[in-house]
């Protein structure tokens, strides 16, 4: 079994959050980031996620290139055990077609970033796309950048109410003290799971896990930082907070296996 599964191993330039990747013209830049920031100790796995910002001058052709690149990084028994794809909500019918295509190619989910995609997370268009993704077996992961109006936590909660019958993973919300407080207040739907990307609030950790339950928190880095260190730090913090070992493993990897339907029985290479 893995030591951890990073559910949000996003391709991101650590020195430039807004780097506009061009995976058609320059895939090497993304490959270098994956090589630098992937699991190193052999026991960790990650679910690779596309960059948040990628150029779209050729529209759906560029989108397909992003998805093909990310899905091609999966290796049986390798560190990248699965991948999320991406679709552009405003492409509408073409977005739906791309969801079907990445599902057929074996993507485990789809990442939405309302902020980068120029929509609002609670719009009916987003709810429809999440339903379509769910019908295709794709789990939706939603970025929740603090202080963004487009992907504000309240909007994601609104989306969750429109999609009550499916799990939705929220990535990055716990990097914000205010968001952690809002989650602690008990708002949001039971179908929401939160990753630990950007989590620097160790003192809030037991409270959040207690409020949500260990089954709704997943280890994730959000990309841009070494997962081995982040996982070790999280394990130490969870154990220090008195969580039983089973709950720690749930957060570090078992929830990811359950929610994303991962097969991690092959030994890591």
């Amino acid at each position: 079994m893995p030591d951890y599964i990073d559910v949000s191993a996003r391709i991101v330039d650590p020195s430039d959050e807004y780097r506009l990747f061009d995976l058609t013209a320059d895939p090497q830049a993304a490959l270098a980031i994956i090589a630098d920031l992937g699991p190193r100790q052999g026991g960790g796995r990650c679910v690779l996620a596309p960059p948040t910002y990628y150029q779209l001058a050729s529209g759906v052709e560029d989108l397909r290139c992003v998805n093909d690149f990310v899905l091609a990084q999966r290796k049986p028994g390798g560190a990248v055990c699965a991948a999320f794809g991406v679709a552009e909500p405003k492409y509408q019918d073409a977005a739906i077609a791309e969801l079907a295509r990445i599902a057929a190619l074996g993507a485990r989910g789809v990442v939405w970033s309302a902020r980068a995609q120029g929509v609002f997370a609670d719009d009916a268009l987003m709810a429809d796309l999440c339903h379509r993704a769910h019908d295709l077996g794709l789990v939706s992961m939603l970025r929740a950048t603090p202080y963004s109006a487009n992907e504000a936590l309240t909007r994601i909660w609104g989306l969750a109410r429109r999609c009550p019958d499916m799990p939705l993973i929220v990535s990055g919300a716990l990097m914000s003290y205010d968001y952690a407080q809002a989650i602690l207040s008990g708002q949001g739907g039971d179908n929401l799971l939160y990753d630990t990307a950007g989590w620097g609030l160790a003192s809030a950790l037991p409270h959040v896990v207690s409020a949500l339950g260990a089954g709704r928190v997943l280890f994730g880095t959000g990309g841009g930082s070494p997962p081995d260190e982040a996982a070790a730090g999280l394990r130490k913090a969870l154990q220090g907070a008195g969580l039983p070992g089973g709950a720690v493993d749930d957060i570090l990897w078992r929830n990811a296996v359950r929610v994303l339907g991962l097969d991690v029985t092959e030994p890591a290479q």
């Binding site: 779209l56 001058a57 529209g59 492409y91 073409a94 929509v119």
Partner: peptide, 12 residues
């Protein structure tokens, strides 16, 4: 309007 569908990219 600045929120429109552009699956053809620049052509749209």
């Amino acid at each position: 309007g600045h929120s429109y569908s552009s699956p053809a990219g620049l052509a749209d």
